[in-house]
Simulated assay, not measured.
Amino acid sequence: MKITAGLGSVDDYLPYVEAGADEFFCGYVPYEWMKNGGLTYPLNRREVLYYNVQIGSESEMEILAALVRRKKKIVTVALNGLFYAPHQYPMIEALIKRLFHMGFSTFIVGDMALLVFLKKNLTVPAEIHVSGEMSESNHIMIDEMRSLGAKRIIFHRKVTPQEMKSCIDYQKMQYPKQPLEYEAFALNELCHFTGAFCSSLHCDELAPACRLPYRLIRTEQADILNYKRQPDQADLENAVENFVLGQSGCGLCALWQLRDAGITHIKLVSRGNYTADTIEDIRQLKNALNILEKSTCEKDYKKQMKSRLFANDCSHNCYYITEN
Protein backbone atom coordinates (compact mmCIF):
# COMPACT_ATOMS: atom_id res chain seq x y z
CA MET A 1 0.00 0.00 0.00
CA LYS A 2 1.14 3.53 -0.81
CA ILE A 3 0.92 6.57 1.46
CA THR A 4 -1.13 9.53 0.18
CA ALA A 5 -0.55 12.68 2.22
CA GLY A 6 -2.39 16.00 2.26
CA LEU A 7 -0.33 18.96 1.09
CA GLY A 8 -1.15 22.43 2.40
CA SER A 9 1.88 24.33 1.12
CA VAL A 10 4.28 24.00 -1.79
CA ASP A 11 7.12 24.30 0.74
CA ASP A 12 6.09 20.99 2.32
CA TYR A 13 6.41 18.88 -0.83
CA LEU A 14 10.12 18.04 -0.60
CA PRO A 15 10.17 17.38 3.19
CA TYR A 16 7.18 15.05 2.83
CA VAL A 17 8.81 13.21 -0.07
CA GLU A 18 11.96 12.76 2.00
CA ALA A 19 9.86 11.49 4.94
CA GLY A 20 8.46 8.72 2.73
CA ALA A 21 5.15 9.84 1.22
CA ASP A 22 4.35 8.20 -2.12
CA GLU A 23 1.90 10.76 -3.45
CA PHE A 24 -0.10 13.82 -2.39
CA PHE A 25 -3.40 15.63 -2.67
CA CYS A 26 -3.88 19.38 -2.40
CA GLY A 27 -6.44 22.15 -2.72
CA TYR A 28 -6.21 25.25 -4.89
CA VAL A 29 -8.72 28.09 -5.19
CA PRO A 30 -7.98 30.35 -8.19
CA TYR A 31 -8.80 34.05 -8.23
CA GLU A 32 -11.62 33.69 -10.75
CA TRP A 33 -13.39 31.26 -8.43
CA MET A 34 -13.20 33.74 -5.56
CA LYS A 35 -14.42 36.52 -7.86
CA ASN A 36 -17.46 34.59 -9.10
CA GLY A 37 -18.42 32.40 -6.18
CA GLY A 38 -16.16 33.07 -3.28
CA LEU A 39 -16.30 30.56 -0.49
CA THR A 40 -20.08 30.24 -0.67
CA TYR A 41 -19.50 27.28 -2.98
CA PRO A 42 -16.43 25.50 -1.58
CA LEU A 43 -14.25 24.23 -4.40
CA ASN A 44 -12.61 21.53 -2.29
CA ARG A 45 -14.42 21.38 1.07
CA ARG A 46 -11.99 23.79 2.69
CA GLU A 47 -13.27 27.35 2.94
CA VAL A 48 -9.82 28.40 4.15
CA LEU A 49 -7.39 30.91 2.68
CA TYR A 50 -5.26 32.19 5.55
CA TYR A 51 -3.27 29.17 6.69
CA ASN A 52 -1.62 26.18 5.03
CA VAL A 53 -4.63 24.35 3.65
CA GLN A 54 -4.63 25.63 0.06
CA ILE A 55 -1.87 26.16 -2.47
CA GLY A 56 -1.84 29.94 -2.61
CA SER A 57 -1.59 30.93 -6.27
CA GLU A 58 -1.21 29.73 -9.84
CA SER A 59 2.49 30.56 -9.74
CA GLU A 60 2.87 28.25 -6.74
CA MET A 61 1.03 25.53 -8.64
CA GLU A 62 3.57 25.96 -11.43
CA ILE A 63 6.40 25.56 -8.91
CA LEU A 64 4.69 22.48 -7.50
CA ALA A 65 4.32 21.00 -11.00
CA ALA A 66 8.06 21.48 -11.55
CA LEU A 67 8.77 19.66 -8.27
CA VAL A 68 6.49 16.81 -9.33
CA ARG A 69 8.38 16.44 -12.60
CA ARG A 70 11.62 16.34 -10.64
CA LYS A 71 10.64 13.92 -7.87
CA LYS A 72 8.03 11.84 -9.73
CA LYS A 73 5.61 11.89 -6.77
CA ILE A 74 2.22 12.89 -8.14
CA VAL A 75 -0.06 15.54 -6.66
CA THR A 76 -3.80 15.09 -7.08
CA VAL A 77 -5.90 18.26 -7.03
CA ALA A 78 -9.05 18.09 -4.91
CA LEU A 79 -12.24 19.41 -6.51
CA ASN A 80 -14.47 17.63 -4.05
CA GLY A 81 -17.19 20.10 -3.17
CA LEU A 82 -20.52 18.39 -2.50
CA PHE A 83 -22.29 20.50 -5.15
CA TYR A 84 -21.79 23.50 -7.42
CA ALA A 85 -23.95 26.06 -9.17
CA PRO A 86 -24.68 25.24 -12.85
CA HIS A 87 -22.52 28.06 -14.19
CA GLN A 88 -19.54 26.77 -12.23
CA TYR A 89 -19.18 23.43 -14.05
CA PRO A 90 -17.58 25.00 -17.15
CA MET A 91 -15.28 26.96 -14.82
CA ILE A 92 -14.13 23.70 -13.21
CA GLU A 93 -13.65 22.11 -16.62
CA ALA A 94 -11.47 25.04 -17.68
CA LEU A 95 -9.50 24.83 -14.43
CA ILE A 96 -8.85 21.11 -14.94
CA LYS A 97 -7.62 21.76 -18.48
CA ARG A 98 -5.30 24.53 -17.30
CA LEU A 99 -3.88 22.43 -14.48
CA PHE A 100 -3.57 19.38 -16.76
CA HIS A 101 -1.42 21.30 -19.22
CA MET A 102 0.60 22.58 -16.26
CA GLY A 103 1.38 18.98 -15.28
CA PHE A 104 -1.41 17.83 -12.94
CA SER A 105 -3.17 14.81 -14.39
CA THR A 106 -5.29 13.50 -11.49
CA PHE A 107 -8.26 15.13 -9.76
CA ILE A 108 -10.51 14.21 -6.82
CA VAL A 109 -14.23 14.74 -7.47
CA GLY A 110 -16.98 14.59 -4.85
CA ASP A 111 -20.07 15.70 -6.84
CA MET A 112 -21.87 13.11 -8.98
CA ALA A 113 -23.22 15.84 -11.29
CA LEU A 114 -19.67 17.06 -11.88
CA LEU A 115 -18.63 13.50 -12.77
CA VAL A 116 -21.42 13.36 -15.36
CA PHE A 117 -20.48 16.78 -16.74
CA LEU A 118 -16.79 15.87 -17.07
CA LYS A 119 -17.62 12.56 -18.72
CA LYS A 120 -19.52 14.42 -21.42
CA ASN A 121 -17.35 17.51 -21.83
CA LEU A 122 -13.75 17.04 -20.65
CA THR A 123 -11.38 16.79 -23.62
CA VAL A 124 -8.11 16.07 -21.78
CA PRO A 125 -7.28 12.56 -20.47
CA ALA A 126 -7.36 13.49 -16.80
CA GLU A 127 -7.63 10.70 -14.23
CA ILE A 128 -10.55 10.96 -11.83
CA HIS A 129 -10.50 9.80 -8.22
CA VAL A 130 -13.86 9.64 -6.46
CA SER A 131 -13.79 11.46 -3.13
CA GLY A 132 -14.87 9.89 0.12
CA GLU A 133 -17.34 12.79 0.21
CA MET A 134 -19.33 10.86 -2.39
CA SER A 135 -20.18 8.37 0.37
CA GLU A 136 -19.62 5.29 -1.76
CA SER A 137 -20.63 2.20 0.20
CA ASN A 138 -21.65 -0.62 -2.16
CA HIS A 139 -20.81 -2.15 -5.53
CA ILE A 140 -23.79 -0.52 -7.26
CA MET A 141 -22.40 2.94 -6.52
CA ILE A 142 -18.90 1.87 -7.56
CA ASP A 143 -20.26 0.43 -10.83
CA GLU A 144 -21.83 3.81 -11.59
CA MET A 145 -18.64 5.69 -10.79
CA ARG A 146 -16.64 3.29 -12.96
CA SER A 147 -18.99 3.99 -15.87
CA LEU A 148 -18.33 7.72 -15.40
CA GLY A 149 -14.59 7.26 -15.71
CA ALA A 150 -13.39 6.87 -12.11
CA LYS A 151 -9.96 5.24 -11.77
CA ARG A 152 -9.75 5.27 -7.97
CA ILE A 153 -12.36 4.94 -5.25
CA ILE A 154 -11.66 6.69 -1.95
CA PHE A 155 -13.79 4.97 0.68
CA HIS A 156 -15.39 7.31 3.17
CA ARG A 157 -14.70 7.14 6.89
CA LYS A 158 -17.71 5.03 7.87
CA VAL A 159 -17.01 2.05 5.58
CA THR A 160 -15.59 -0.95 7.45
CA PRO A 161 -12.70 -3.06 6.09
CA GLN A 162 -15.17 -5.91 5.63
CA GLU A 163 -17.47 -3.73 3.52
CA MET A 164 -14.48 -2.52 1.48
CA LYS A 165 -13.45 -6.10 0.82
CA SER A 166 -16.97 -7.00 -0.33
CA CYS A 167 -17.02 -4.09 -2.80
CA ILE A 168 -13.49 -4.77 -4.09
CA ASP A 169 -14.02 -8.53 -4.47
CA TYR A 170 -17.13 -7.84 -6.56
CA GLN A 171 -15.24 -5.45 -8.82
CA LYS A 172 -12.40 -7.96 -9.28
CA MET A 173 -14.90 -10.66 -10.20
CA GLN A 174 -16.92 -8.51 -12.62
CA TYR A 175 -14.03 -6.58 -14.19
CA PRO A 176 -10.87 -8.73 -13.90
CA LYS A 177 -9.10 -6.87 -16.72
CA GLN A 178 -10.11 -3.37 -15.61
CA PRO A 179 -8.79 -2.98 -12.05
CA LEU A 180 -9.49 0.13 -10.02
CA GLU A 181 -7.37 1.62 -7.26
CA TYR A 182 -8.81 1.88 -3.77
CA GLU A 183 -7.95 4.31 -0.99
CA ALA A 184 -8.88 4.30 2.70
CA PHE A 185 -8.29 6.66 5.61
CA ALA A 186 -5.42 5.69 7.92
CA LEU A 187 -4.45 8.68 10.09
CA ASN A 188 -5.93 11.90 11.50
CA GLU A 189 -9.20 13.81 11.37
CA LEU A 190 -11.64 11.10 12.37
CA CYS A 191 -15.07 12.69 12.04
CA HIS A 192 -18.41 11.69 13.48
CA PHE A 193 -20.11 12.84 10.27
CA THR A 194 -20.31 11.11 6.92
CA GLY A 195 -18.79 13.64 4.52
CA ALA A 196 -21.58 13.49 1.93
CA PHE A 197 -24.11 14.55 4.56
CA CYS A 198 -21.99 17.16 6.34
CA SER A 199 -22.94 20.81 5.86
CA SER A 200 -20.44 22.17 8.37
CA LEU A 201 -18.08 24.92 7.21
CA HIS A 202 -14.32 24.41 7.34
CA CYS A 203 -13.35 28.07 7.32
CA ASP A 204 -10.98 30.62 8.85
CA GLU A 205 -13.53 32.21 11.15
CA LEU A 206 -15.35 29.25 12.72
CA ALA A 207 -14.29 25.87 14.07
CA PRO A 208 -16.01 23.11 12.06
CA ALA A 209 -18.55 20.95 13.84
CA CYS A 210 -16.18 17.98 13.57
CA ARG A 211 -13.83 19.82 15.96
CA LEU A 212 -16.39 19.78 18.77
CA PRO A 213 -15.03 17.63 21.62
CA TYR A 214 -16.66 14.23 22.00
CA ARG A 215 -15.79 10.75 23.13
CA LEU A 216 -16.58 7.54 21.22
CA ILE A 217 -17.43 4.44 23.26
CA ARG A 218 -19.00 1.02 22.73
CA THR A 219 -22.59 1.06 23.96
CA GLU A 220 -22.28 -2.42 25.43
CA GLN A 221 -19.34 -1.31 27.57
CA ALA A 222 -20.92 1.67 29.31
CA ASP A 223 -24.12 2.85 30.91
CA ILE A 224 -25.02 5.66 28.50
CA LEU A 225 -27.40 7.29 30.99
CA ASN A 226 -24.59 7.65 33.52
CA TYR A 227 -21.82 8.47 31.05
CA LYS A 228 -21.79 12.27 31.17
CA ARG A 229 -18.13 13.26 31.22
CA GLN A 230 -16.92 15.23 28.21
CA PRO A 231 -13.34 16.38 27.51
CA ASP A 232 -12.71 19.63 29.38
CA GLN A 233 -10.32 22.45 28.54
CA ALA A 234 -7.46 20.73 30.35
CA ASP A 235 -7.94 17.65 28.14
CA LEU A 236 -7.79 19.77 24.99
CA GLU A 237 -4.69 21.70 26.09
CA ASN A 238 -2.93 18.47 27.05
CA ALA A 239 -3.72 16.98 23.63
CA VAL A 240 -2.13 19.98 21.88
CA GLU A 241 1.02 19.96 24.00
CA ASN A 242 1.66 16.21 23.86
CA PHE A 243 1.79 14.88 20.32
CA VAL A 244 0.44 11.34 20.00
CA LEU A 245 0.52 9.44 16.74
CA GLY A 246 -3.01 9.34 15.37
CA GLN A 247 -4.38 11.47 18.19
CA SER A 248 -7.19 12.86 16.03
CA GLY A 249 -7.92 9.55 14.32
CA CYS A 250 -5.98 6.32 13.83
CA GLY A 251 -6.43 3.28 11.62
CA LEU A 252 -3.05 1.60 12.10
CA CYS A 253 -4.48 -1.51 13.76
CA ALA A 254 -6.60 -2.09 10.65
CA LEU A 255 -3.75 -1.98 8.09
CA TRP A 256 -3.63 -5.79 7.94
CA GLN A 257 -7.36 -5.95 7.15
CA LEU A 258 -7.17 -3.04 4.71
CA ARG A 259 -4.35 -4.72 2.78
CA ASP A 260 -6.25 -8.00 2.68
CA ALA A 261 -9.37 -6.17 1.49
CA GLY A 262 -7.46 -4.89 -1.55
CA ILE A 263 -6.76 -1.29 -0.52
CA THR A 264 -3.92 0.10 -2.65
CA HIS A 265 -3.47 3.53 -1.02
CA ILE A 266 -3.86 4.79 2.54
CA LYS A 267 -4.75 8.41 3.25
CA LEU A 268 -2.94 10.60 5.74
CA VAL A 269 -5.15 13.65 6.38
CA SER A 270 -2.74 16.53 6.91
CA ARG A 271 -3.83 19.69 5.11
CA GLY A 272 -3.53 22.48 7.67
CA ASN A 273 -1.51 20.45 10.18
CA TYR A 274 1.90 21.48 11.45
CA THR A 275 4.64 20.44 9.03
CA ALA A 276 6.73 18.77 11.73
CA ASP A 277 3.76 16.70 12.89
CA THR A 278 2.97 15.57 9.35
CA ILE A 279 6.59 14.57 8.72
CA GLU A 280 6.47 12.42 11.86
CA ASP A 281 3.08 10.99 10.80
CA ILE A 282 4.52 9.98 7.41
CA ARG A 283 7.58 8.38 8.99
CA GLN A 284 5.56 6.40 11.50
CA LEU A 285 3.02 5.34 8.89
CA LYS A 286 5.95 4.14 6.76
CA ASN A 287 7.26 2.23 9.78
CA ALA A 288 3.84 0.62 10.27
CA LEU A 289 3.85 -0.55 6.64
CA ASN A 290 7.34 -2.00 7.06
CA ILE A 291 6.19 -3.89 10.17
CA LEU A 292 3.16 -5.08 8.21
CA GLU A 293 5.37 -6.51 5.46
CA LYS A 294 7.47 -8.48 7.94
CA SER A 295 4.65 -9.76 10.16
CA THR A 296 3.49 -13.35 9.95
CA CYS A 297 -0.09 -12.77 11.09
CA GLU A 298 -2.45 -9.98 12.13
CA LYS A 299 -1.88 -10.57 15.84
CA ASP A 300 1.89 -10.39 15.38
CA TYR A 301 1.55 -7.19 13.34
CA LYS A 302 -0.53 -5.41 16.00
CA LYS A 303 1.82 -6.48 18.79
CA GLN A 304 4.93 -5.32 16.96
CA MET A 305 3.35 -2.12 15.70
CA LYS A 306 2.04 -1.02 19.09
CA SER A 307 5.27 -1.82 20.91
CA ARG A 308 7.41 0.07 18.40
CA LEU A 309 5.24 3.06 17.48
CA PHE A 310 3.51 3.91 20.75
CA ALA A 311 5.75 4.61 23.72
CA ASN A 312 2.96 4.36 26.31
CA ASP A 313 -0.47 3.93 24.80
CA CYS A 314 -2.29 4.77 21.59
CA SER A 315 -4.92 7.47 21.19
CA HIS A 316 -7.87 5.01 21.28
CA ASN A 317 -9.45 7.25 18.64
CA CYS A 318 -10.02 4.40 16.19
CA TYR A 319 -11.19 4.67 12.59
CA TYR A 320 -11.98 0.98 12.46
CA ILE A 321 -12.96 -1.35 15.29
CA THR A 322 -10.74 -4.45 15.24
CA GLU A 323 -10.25 -7.25 17.72
CA ASN A 324 -7.16 -6.97 19.93
Rank of each mutant, 00 (worst) to 15 (best):
A5R: 04
S9E: 08
W33N: 05
K35Y: 08
G37S: 13
V53C: 14
I55W: 12
S59I: 05
I63Y: 11
A66W: 07
R69P: 00
V75Q: 09
A78D: 08
A85C: 03
P86Y: 09
Q88N: 02
A94H: 12
I96S: 05
R98F: 02
H101C: 04
L114C: 04
L115R: 07
K119M: 02
K119R: 15
N121D: 08
V124N: 08
P125N: 12
G132Q: 07
S137M: 11
I142L: 11
I153T: 06
I154Q: 12
R157M: 04
Q162N: 10
D169N: 14
E181D: 14
L187E: 07
E189P: 00
E189W: 08
E189L: 08
T194A: 14
A196N: 10
C203Y: 07
E205F: 07
Y214H: 15
Q233F: 10
E237L: 12
E241P: 00
F243W: 15
V244S: 13
G246Q: 07
C250L: 11
L255M: 08
W256S: 02
L258M: 15
R259I: 01
L268F: 03
V269H: 13
R271Y: 05
D277S: 10
I279W: 09
R283I: 02
N287V: 01
A288K: 09
T296K: 13
K299H: 09
Q304S: 08
D313I: 11
S315M: 03
Y319D: 04
T322R: 10
N324E: 14
